[in-house]
């Protein structure tokens, strides 16, 4: 079968209509998990089937697509999804956050602030924030409906009781517009403050068949205790390549003698800064010597 035998962006138009209806409902009720009839996609669950379906429903031929995985443009998941839409939708692709009209992401929000008109699509493994506390879906839906969210704090209580601080570092629960408690997908809690954004944020969970959304400029509050307030934490280092002290960092083991380096997890942000002349501890020639 040739690639032109596919409909634009792989999914048929009726499916895309169904997904768009779910997206519109999600945008109308921020943070509410809208059920949708998730399709089987030509990739395994866990690879972003939910995000891919949302992206497919939103793409137009004029769009410029960027795909990131843990902030990086060049990892397996990002490359395969980008290639998938290049082949099935022939859309332009980019690695630059500012140039993209639609960004599909896994586990990160780009460092560069998003602008109006951009769409950020998240891949979500488990959309239900209460799942590990209350396994019954019937019960969690009732709790969402009746706004009974005391249980969410039980998890944070357990964190403090066992670790002395709120040790939840990713998928940190938030309350959207004072109503629905939402799992922001496994983004680090460092990214939580940037959930209040100018861009449309859409969340797709393929296996769990749920879509939810945060419209632009929506209030998003990270849950916490009065005496243990929310803190957006990151590794206490500057980036070793670009020297940025405020970006979210990955820790990379560079030898078997305890050597390590910290680099921006957002590869586009880091390379843009290096192109502008910023330098970190191990950038350029220093790095080559270190590794030699």
């Amino acid at each position: 079968m040739t690639e032109t035998a596919y409909n634009f962006a792989y999914l048929d138009e009726q499916t895309k209509r169904m997904i768009r209806r779910a997206i519109l409902k999600g945008v109308a009720i921020p943070g509410y998990q809208v059920p949708f009839a998730s399709r089987e996609m030509p990739m395994p669950y866990g690879w972003g089937t939910g995000g891919v379906q949302v992206t497919a429903a939103c793409l137009t031929p004029a769009d410029t697509l960027k795909v990131i995985d843990q902030g990086a443009d060049d990892t397996t998941n990002a490359v395969s999804i980008r290639k998938f839409f290049q082949r099935t939708a022939q859309v332009a692709v980019t690695e630059h956050t500012e140039e993209a009209s639609l960004i599909q992401t896994r586990h990160r929000i780009p460092e560069t602030p998003l602008a109006e008109g951009q769409i950020l699509v998240y891949q979500v493994p488990i959309p239900e924030p209460l799942r590990f506390l209350e396994p019954r879906e019937t019960e969690t839906r009732k709790m969402h409906a009746l706004e009974e969210y005391g249980l969410m704090h039980v998890k944070l209580y357990e964190d403090i009781a066992h670790n002395g601080e709120i040790s939840t570092a990713y998928a940190y629960p938030v309350q959207v517009e004072g109503r629905y408690v939402m799992d922001p997908s496994p983004i680090p809690k460092f990214d939580n403050p940037r959930l209040e954004s100018a861009a449309v944020q859409l969340f797709g969970a393929g296996r769990e068949q749920r879509i939810y959304a945060i419209p632009p400029y929506t209030q998003v509050v990270s849950l916490d205790f009065e005496d243990y307030p929310f803190e957006a934490s990151k590794a206490d280092h500057p980036c070793d390549l670009c020297g940025c002290a405020t970006s979210y960092l990955d820790e990379v083991i560079v030898d078997d003698a305890g050597g390590r380096m910290f680099v921006c997890s957002d590869t586009d942000f880091c390379s843009t800064r290096r192109a502008e002349g910023h330098r970190g501890r191990l950038s350029g020639e220093d790095l080559a010597e270190e590794l030699a």
Partner: peptide, 21 residues
């Protein structure tokens, strides 16, 4: 699945207690 303290605290948190101490 959660500690004894959280079990007792759950009802307090369910009615709006938000001070860990």
């Amino acid at each position: 699945g959660v500690s004894a303290g959280a079990n007792v605290g759950e009802r307090l948190m369910a009615v709006g207690a938000r001070h860990y101490g």
